[in-house]
Amino acid sequence: MAGDNGTAAPGRHERFRGDNPIVVSGLKNQFGDAVIHEDLDLKVRRGEILGVVGGSGTGKSVLMRSIIGLQMPTAGDIHVFGKSIVDAEPDEEIGVRDRWGVLFQGGALFSTLTVGENVEVPLKQFYPQISDELRHEIARFKIILSGLPEEAVNKYPSELSGGMKKRAGLARALALDPELLFLDEPTAGLDPIGAAAFDNLTRELKETLGLTVFLITHDLDTLHEICDRVAVIADKRVIAVDTVPNLMELDHPWIQEYFNGPRGRAALTAQALDELRRHMDEPVAAHAVKALDKPPAGKDKA
């Protein structure tokens, strides 16, 4: 007895084995007279969570839109899974759209479909041969994997809270078991508990599913907690890509302001506190936690 699948060509099912699923080189984006990016280079490593930071208006979202082919760059080259995005026509089938998932800032759920039907859309689009029953099952477990309660499956997006919309958007982004996940400010607008839960979810999914994550964020806690490396966009380029501790050593004014400003320090202390709590059985750590928990004159946020 053998199952046969004659339609799919061999090789299409192989995961990307190269080092850099995303390679951007010499990217230039220009709107009218305003140059957003100039000579921007970026390589994303396989299996990492790359955080992308930059001031407002530095073109983080434009960079993401360029990589996923929604924004034709003025010049430069973008390769995803070794395939050029720039050379392709806007809606041309280039065999990468079923290998990435995108979570837009507002969730971008289709408002006339329920959450479950939203998750089914990419499945129907790319794999019409999947039976209805299996497709329903896939949609259900993706939604539950994304941390939504079972009852959310047949709710409309307008009936969900902001945090639930993000999770539903994530479930749709994960519908095709992508290798690459784009998240545009996933924790913006979430309460700290929701944001921390979303960070954990991102990390867990990355580890379980072996994802590479391209994550735009303003959330310093997210950067400290889950990002393997952080790319800083300033002066129209990516000025540095490194781990957070290494970035803090750099002598760029914006980076210093960003990571060593009051909020940056608070996030760092919070993370140090978390780290210490994991070793509470050791007396030194316990003392340190106590000391940090009670700031002397209430000046420091930690």
């Binding site: 199952g3 699948n5 339609t7 799919a8 299409r12 041969q129 999947i130 299996l134 078991d177």
Partner: peptide, 16 residues
Amino acid sequence: GPYLVSTIGALDEELR
């Protein structure tokens, strides 16, 4: 063989 979203469609009913 590969058990992926792209290959499962043909087998699903038989396996069930």
